[in-house]
Simulated scan of single mutants.
Amino acid sequence: MTDSSSMSQCDCGAIAGPLGVCVDYYHGILAEEQADPQMYRWHAPVVCAYLLQHPSRAHEKYLDGQFRQLQLYVDKGIDALLRVAAHQVARNRRGTQSGYDMAPLAAYAPLPPDRPPGHFRATFCELPFRDGSFVSDGHLAYGHRIETIAEATVESWRSAQA
């Protein structure tokens, strides 16, 4: 546990879990996924959801793209998001242009200009961590939990603009 785990509430509004606040869970996930290629499939939605739930830890100029990526993931699933990521990597390798190709994300709503939501129905603090792992009950179950967090993140941001 880090020093932040001594707090009882995270800046996203979540109550700290057994590992601490969301940043403790986030760092744990990032460390574990480095050794687990199956778990790493959910890296992009983990990063996007974490930063959108904790925008003070993000670079503001990237939040719109992260919000659109998360909407794509919620709408079409992990395989669609991975295809967009592969397209971007291939585009960058060819040296086509600098910057991110937003065309695959154009159908999705921009990040609302309002201040960030203060509460999410699902957060990282709620993720189960058993036997030293976030995937102790399988990768599919882990993926479903990340999808729930992603849905809750998109839902709260959309509600904040209403």
Rank of each mutant, 00 (worst) to 15 (best):
M1A: 04
T2K: 09
D3L: 09
S4E: 11
S4K: 07
S6K: 13
M7Q: 06
Q9K: 05
Q9E: 13
G13N: 12
G13I: 09
G13T: 12
A14F: 08
A14N: 06
I15G: 02
I15H: 05
I15D: 05
G17F: 08
G17R: 07
P18L: 10
V21G: 01
V23F: 08
D24L: 03
D24N: 12
Y25I: 11
Y25R: 12
H27G: 13
I29C: 12
A31I: 06
A31W: 00
E32M: 02
Q34V: 09
A35R: 13
D36V: 00
D36M: 03
Y40L: 11
R41Q: 15
W42C: 03
W42K: 02
H43S: 12
V46K: 03
V46E: 10
V47Q: 07
V47I: 14
C48D: 15
A49M: 03
A49T: 10
A49D: 06
L51H: 13
L51W: 00
Q53K: 02
Q53C: 05
H54K: 06
H54F: 04
H54R: 05
P55H: 03
S56K: 10
R57H: 14
A58C: 08
E60H: 11
K61Q: 12
G65K: 01
G65W: 01
F67K: 01
F67R: 03
R68G: 03
L72Q: 13
K76R: 15
K76P: 00
G77E: 06
L81V: 01
L82Q: 15
R83K: 14
R83H: 13
R83T: 15
A85E: 14
A85L: 14
A86V: 11
Q88N: 11
R91I: 00
R91P: 02
R91G: 00
N92L: 13
R93I: 10
R93S: 03
R94P: 00
G95N: 05
G95Q: 04
T96A: 07
Q97D: 10
Q97K: 05
Y100H: 09
Y100D: 04
D101Q: 03
M102D: 07
M102Q: 08
P104V: 02
L105V: 04
A106R: 14
A106M: 04
P110F: 02
L111R: 06
L111Q: 07
P112T: 04
P113W: 00
R115A: 15
H119W: 00
A122L: 03
T123H: 05
L127D: 07
P128L: 05
P128E: 10
R130E: 10
R130I: 03
D131V: 01
D131Y: 01
G132M: 07
S133K: 12
S136C: 10
S136I: 02
D137Y: 08
D137M: 12
D137L: 13
H139M: 05
H139R: 02
L140T: 14
A141P: 01
A141L: 15
A141C: 01
Y142Q: 08
G143A: 14
G143I: 14
H144M: 14
E147C: 11
E147W: 04
E151G: 07
A152N: 05
A152V: 09
T153V: 02
V154M: 03
E155R: 09
S156N: 07
W157S: 02
W157N: 00
R158P: 01
A160L: 04
Q161D: 06
A162E: 09
A162C: 05
